[in-house]
Structure formats: C-alpha cells, structure tokens
C-alpha cells in the first residue's frame, strides 16, 4: 500500500470533530492530528497509526518493507467470529496490513530500521506475521548495520494462532539476541498499552527502553491481577512512571520530544562521529 492509498482511505471516514479519550474534551480532529495525537488540553497520548509514526520520526523518503508477508488462518480458528472473516474484514477496513509495519529510512540523516505496531489490528497482537516481519527487520538491521527502533503497542500474543503465537515470543527474542551479539542497537519505545506476550519478549529486551507518559505497561492485565489477588491495585500501577520508579525502563519521553531523544541516543551510542 502506498502512502496515498492510506490517506485516501483515511479521508473517507474522517470526522471533523473528535473527543479526547482521557479528558473527554471535544477537539478538532485536525488539531489533534497536527499535534501528533497528543491532546492539546490534557496531554493524553492517543494511539497513533504506524504511518503517522513514520512521518513523525523519519525523514521524507522512506520505504515500507516486508508487506508481502500476510496472515493466514492455518488453524481454522473460530471464536465468536471466524478468524478468517476477521482478517478479511480488516483487509478492507484497516490502514495497515498487519499489526506491525516495517520502515527503512533515516532519522535526521541517521539510517535506521523502524518497526511500528498498530493496536487497531486485533489489539496489536503478535501472530506469525508480526514474528516474521520483526525477525526480517532485525536481520536486515544486522546485515546493513543500522539501529533498529521498535515502537510497540500490543495486547499480547494472538490467541487465534494459539501456540504458534507463543512461539513467536521465542522467535522475536532470538532475533533480538542476534542484534545484541552483533552490537546493533535495539531501542524500544513502549506506548499505551504494552502487555502480555510482546512485553515478555522483544519489548523488554531493548538495549534502551523508552516509554510514553502514562502508558500502561506490564505482563498481566490489571483485571487478571485484581481477580487473582482480590485487592485494589495502587493508582499508578503498571504506568510508565511506575515502571521508571521501579527501575524497569530507562526514561519516560513525551511524544513531541521522541524524535530528538532518539536522535540523541543514536548519536551517543552508534553514530558517534557523525
């Protein structure tokens, strides 16, 4: 899909007004978009489409990689709906072809591989395609000796692919290990929400782990924990700020400062003489 298709699709369902998920204020849709989906009133970071992430972080010319890897319903899985039908529906309505999109481009002239997840595609869940694209992106980063930056949002493993989605945790972790062993920087940006199988694999294996403000990040869902321990959870539980305090991430960075921060890290760690 080209970027033009993406905007054409978007135009169709565009509404003039939108509402902030957090403060419930009515906002101009365009105003929210130009502000990179950060609410101008309360600063809440809304989920952002992979192509918008690429537009925000990357320089003008970038390419989209591995779009030819597409999902298939190999188990004939059926819950309330058939997985096959879900995929078919998403193919028509979604801006992205899977829950991860891989970009090859430059961040302020530094060549990088950027992978961005999309929560609107079955909860950003990791199935075979996410695993394969992530692996190929990582191997390409190693081959071209470029840093790999991964912007993550995911509910976890894709249950419709059952145990094969569990195996993607091993697949992506080993792919990260190959980057580690080859001294290729792997930087993860955790956005709201990052939980389950993705957090328990490549998300927390970053050399440097950055989170957006007030993102929910953790292994188990808050509801599951509440049901298990039958206690009220602390208010900031599993937020970025909570994880920073507990020593689990390196920093919390506002979306508007993300590009600058990433550039800084890249120049300190990898592009040292540039």
């Amino acid at each position: 899909m080209s970027i033009f298709d993406f905007f054409r699709k978007k135009e169709k369902k565009e509404n003039l007004w939108t509402k902030c998920e957090e403060c419930k204020n009515i906002l101009l849709a365009q105003e929210l978009e130009t502000n990179f989906y950060v609410c101008p009133k309360c600063g809440h970071h809304h989920q952002m489409n992979p192509y918008l992430w690429a537009n925000m972080i990357l320089d003008y010319n970038y390419t989209v990689l591995f779009e030819y890897i597409k999902p298939t319903d190999f188990l004939s899985f059926k819950d309330t709906k058939k997985y096959k039908d879900r995929l078919k529906m998403l193919k028509e309505s979604s801006n992205t072809s899977e829950a991860i999109t891989i970009f090859d481009g430059k961040l302020s002239d530094y060549p990088i591989i950027l992978s961005v997840m999309d929560f609107s595609f079955i909860g950003g869940s990791m199935g075979s395609v996410v695993g394969e694209r992530f692996k190929l992106a990582s191997l390409k980063a190693v081959q071209d000796r470029k840093p790999h930056i991964s912007v993550i949002t995911s509910g976890g493993a894709r249950m419709q692919e059952s145990v094969i989605s569990l195996m993607q945790m091993a697949k992506t972790s080993i792919a990260v290990d190959i980057m580690h062993k080859n001294s290729v920087p792997f930087i993860t940006v955790l956005t709201n929400p990052t939980t389950g199988g993705v957090s328990a694999s490549f998300a927390f294996l970053g050399d440097i782990i950055i989170a957006e403000p007030k993102a929910i990040i953790g292994f188990a869902g808050a509801r599951v924990i509440e049901q298990t321990i039958k206690q009220q959870l602390p208010e900031d539980f599993q937020t970025s700020e909570f994880l920073l305090k507990k020593g689990m991430i390196d920093m919390v960075v506002h979306r508007h400062l993300m590009k600058q921060t990433l550039k800084n890290i890249l120049s300190l760690l990898f592009y040292k003489n540039a």
Partner: peptide, 14 residues
Amino acid sequence: EERGQAQAIATSIE
C-alpha cells in the same frame, strides 16, 4: 509486576 515479570521472562527466553 514491580520486579519485572515481563523482563524476567523475556531474558529467560533470550
């Protein structure tokens, strides 16, 4: 969660 369940599992797998 406080002590990094996700991180512990991820590093084990790796």
